[in-house]
Amino acid sequence: MRGAFINTLSKLAKKNTDIFLLTGDLGYSVIEGFQKDFPRRFFNIGVAEANMAGIAAGLALSGKTVFMYSIVPFVTMRCFEQVRNDICIQNLKVRIIGAGGGLCYGSAGPTHHSIEDISIMRSLPNMTVICPGDPLEAELAVRSSENYPGPVYIRLGKSKESAVHAGIKGFKIGKGILINEGRDVAIIATGNMLHTASQVTKGLVRKGISACLISMHTVKPIDKDIIRSVALKAKAIFTVEEHSVIGGLGSAVSEVLAEEGKEICFMRIGLPDAYTKEIGSQEYLRSRLGLSANDIERRILEVYRKRIKL
């Protein structure tokens, strides 16, 4: 996804001379091409994310469209008040690009994991929150953000994510994508869990369960229409995300569902409210924390079968 991000940004920057890229000294083997092609519109701010966010605001106040890049915790939490005061209160065209969403930086440990970022960014007025699910969604999110008003947070994965979409027609920020139709179970996934969710959907279908899959790439504003018109038609609804179950996609969807005033079978599947002590790769951590395709399928089946018996 980082590759999709930088390639798309470079293409946009060729035509749009207002585009700037800032980094907090991260992005080895990612940002070099942009730096070479657009040296006057690239700044390595140094290891100083608060300053980076303030500079981004100053550039945006001067009419620039600014992309600021770092690993998720550093570009969202280290400089949180600058993001809030300088960027969100003033409603500026700054795009916060977080690399390594969720558990991408597996063995690097909890300082480099991001399990709270969607929740935190979602709480900021004016902020749009996008978690692309595959490289194509990442490309389209970056492209769509160019002329989108106000601040945008784009939560990327890392590299070599599998493609889920062969193509996407009419990608729109704030509009979920219906990937698979189904009447029994609805799975709403975001970000780097999309591929796993797609595997789970296929697994359920193989078991004779009609499973619907929605890619909810934009967590804020949440697409209420697709939740009401598609997901609510299923017998049970599940959200899947590589993020704490508190405050992320699961919370955003449950806020919509709770206000429907209907009896709904719903479950959030995400990371527990804990900093993991486990050490290992993203894949290993997912398996230890209940986010492997098998785990997710098992949990969905348990809930669904209970529901059917009722």
């Binding site: 700044f43 500079i55 100053g58 001067s62 300088d86």
Partner: peptide
């Protein structure tokens, strides 16, 4: 020109404007 109130924000924003 700029919203302020929390201390320590203005100089970075000024740097961004100076770069522009």
């Amino acid at each position: 020109e700029v919203s302020t109130g929390s201390l320590g924000h203005g100089l970075s924003i000024g740097v961004g404007m100076a770069l522009a």
